[in-house]
Write a protein that binds this DNA or RNA. Structure first.
Lengths: 339, 339
DNA sequence: CTGAAAGCGCTAACAT
DNA sequence: ATGTTAGCGCTTTCAG
């Protein structure tokens, strides 16, 4: 009570020890919940801690224990709502295991991503989960492969890095088969360029499903974009609409943002969805159910993906030489009104 | 060349020193770019560093220098795209000043937020920027006020915490005056509940502007929601639409997500935007320009808000006893087709 | 220009 | 059950 004035000077474990009339070791034991301390002593220490306003210096503890209990999650674009649920999944597992999870916005820039890996190298974080494009990951794989990290959603199965994701080839096939079952034979694909592995996988799934149904793919119906934003989708739709009688009756866009842009572009060209052109997206982001018409799309088990990634990472931290396998989780086609 | 095999054992500064035939002090000097080292010695050290694959242990350095050069940004909801540009602004300033910025998703939960503040208390981060609701901040203000942090967008001017934001009262007034100028007199407000200070400020701005124009506010046209998501906006619109002849001709929603939901709800009720009901949102998030019709809304200078917040924080870190003032930045009404 | 040595604040043997 | 002590890996006087 008499010591209300907390000096702004840092109070250390030694100060607490002195105050409580015990050794620093005892204070440390109390702090860490070791059982071999007499209750009376424990109480004295607690009182001294409270009275002094002591706060443990985790930096010192971390240096000593050689771990930070910090996990990093690297996202390529913080503005993309797609990552939200994944991040929540990671966070919940991290928390349950006594770790903090902190987010890094890499901007899909290898240099920035490298700088975050430096946090691992400098022992300031214990591990990382990377949601970045496989290309970015690969640029770093060589020197980074010894570091404790796992890939999520975007990954190269051959990079030797543990990963979690879905079967993109199968998912794209499911979309095409769904569209075919609805009577479509003129199906376009709007893809995300070759930076993303998932793009190549979905393209292959699209092609193979078409082929399996005996439908020849029209090259004019395959558009590769270098962006995933609404505008890009809009422009692609305009391009497809301008085909006139040669235009497709269904469009599969590899992301919901693209698909929403597509619907806008179609509307701009005087075409109705789904009457004139059906549209399917990918990801099932929050707005997808709230655009007009609501978007048919492929849902990934985002939360589960994040949880699985976190669990993989923790396993790797516990046993650095454990074999950590790649994991594929099931997706789901969400049927709404756009197709 | 002969030493390609990097032992997985941690190599320390002492190892490098031995290898280079110098003292650890000299290695440290080279590492930190001190000038008082002979070029030949410097070269020897560099070679030893490269050959050994040495990586500085930042934990140790941080302990010694008593700083982490880590900044935290706390967001209430990682999934809300509203924060993206702000975060980028913070990040760029942090980077330019040699800091890492890491994101924390608090879920607007005071307990979780407190846990992140613990990172500050434990010296694992040097400072923080908090984008959380003022209510959450206040729950922590008492004990947290000694910590180096600033509030951004949501803040209590009286909490004694440095802040950056916009003039919400004025912005809401601008919206109402714009609507009045367009001939509207039946203007509804869809608000976000009382958890958010900006909600109260915008409500006051709405009321005052109406009053100044001699228009009596109809209580049935003021809806308080406890959520900001699309569904909530949709339900509120349905409620307003059900008023029949008593329904408003314009709706001001305090966030774009709400506004988009409102437009959907209106459409569901057979009402056209803007012909039957005009809609104005707030924030100018990315989708706002891509919904149908494009949304008229208030843009906040997000990037600038983030930069200003980061600069305030850095100033506070440099001089803990400096007076750091509150800062208000200008907003802008973006006129599109919804109103 | 370089080295020796003293810590930063903590944990974990190893005593007692 | 408690204390002593040796570091964790680094930076920084202080000497030389």
């Amino acid at each position: 009570m008499s010591d209300t004035v907390r000096s702004r000077e840092e109070v250390s474990i030694a100060d607490v020890a002195e105050r409580a009339g015990v050794s620093v070791a005892t204070v440390s034991r109390v702090l860490n919940g070791h059982t071999n301390v007499r209750e009376a002593t424990r109480e004295k220490v607690r009182a001294a801690v409270a009275a002094s306003g002591y706060r443990i210096n985790e930096l010192a503890r971390n240096l000593r224990t050689a771990e930070s209990r910090l996990l990093l999650t690297m996202v390529p674009d913080f503005g993309n709502p797609f990552y939200a649920a994944i991040v929540r999944g990671i966070d919940s597992v991290a928390r349950q295991n006594g770790y903090f999870m902190l987010l890094c916005d890499t901007g899909a820039d290898p240099l920035r991503e490298r700088s975050y890996f430096d946090l691992l190298r400098g022992r300031r974080a214990d591990g990382a989960i990377c949601l970045d494009p496989a290309a970015v990951q690969n640029a770093l794989a060589e020197e980074a492969s010894a570091l404790p990290w796992v890939a999520c959603c975007e990954f190269d199965p051959d990079a030797g890095v543990p990963y979690v994701g879905i079967d993109n080839h199968l998912a794209a096939g499911d979309v095409v088969r769904y569209l075919i079952a609805k009577g479509h034979r003129r199906i376009a694909l709007i893809n995300s360029g070759h930076g993303y592995l998932y793009g190549r996988q979905r393209q292959a799934g699209y092609r193979d499903a078409l082929e399996a149904a005996g439908i020849a793919a029209n090259p004019a119906w395959q558009i590769d974009l270098d962006s995933l934003d609404y505008d890009a989708g809009e422009r692609a739709a305009a391009q497809l609409a301008s085909l006139g009688r040669e235009r497709p009756t269904a469009i599969f866009a590899v992301s919901d943002t693209l698909a929403i842009g597509v619907m806008n572009g179609l509307r701009g060209a005087g075409l109705r969805v789904p009457e004139d052109v059906a549209v399917v997206g990918f990801d099932d982001i929050a707005v997808a159910a709230h655009v007009d018409p609501p978007l048919t799309t492929v849902a990934q088990p985002m939360q589960a993906l994040g949880e699985a990634a976190a669990n993989l990472l923790l396993k790797r931290l516990r046993d650095p030489r454990a074999h950590v396998p790649g994991v594929l989780l099931p997706h789901r086609l969400i049927q709404r009104r756009s197709a």
